[in-house]
Amino acid sequence: MSRARKLLVFGGISLAVFGMLYGLHYAVFVEHQTLDRMGGSLAEAFMGAAEGNVLEVDRAVDVYASTKYNYVRQVDVHSHWIGLAMLMIVLGVALDGVALAERLQVWMAVALLTGSLVFPLGVVLQTVRHGAVWASMLAILGSGLVTVSLAVLAWGFIRQRA
């Protein structure tokens, strides 16, 4: 097993297990409560409107928006970690067919692993403080690393001969 393959396969499996544990924890301890709060706040907004309570409407819509902001990102993080992990494992197994120097393969594997970890991490950190620029920058950096390394590996696959 080459170093690049080890990095991709073991990094991918670790990330998949981590992503699943994160998803299981979220489903059991957080998701039901979050969905209750999201639906409840939307219902409160409408009930507040029915009672002519404008302040209650604004408060409830804001709670709904904030809860949904968190929910969308938490679910995205779970699926992106697992999806990227699967991609890493597949690329690890397929690495024999990549026409790239071994050193470049290792660098691409490191970039893909780092990006796959950092990109969803940046997204989940956006829920700690809404609109945090540093969290968005982390997500952009991670997704950039993933995209560039995948593009280089794609080039390696295209270069291979029959």
């Binding site: 991609l87 397929a94 067919g97 295209i158």
Partner: peptide
């Protein structure tokens, strides 16, 4: 290195890249 394998692998990587770019 059959045609099927190379086409599926190459096509797959291109599809994933397109998906990444669109997601970004």
């Amino acid at each position: 290195r059959t045609w099927e394998r190379r086409t599926l692998m190459g096509g797959g990587v291109v599809l994933v890249l397109l998906g990444f770019l669109y997601g970004a």
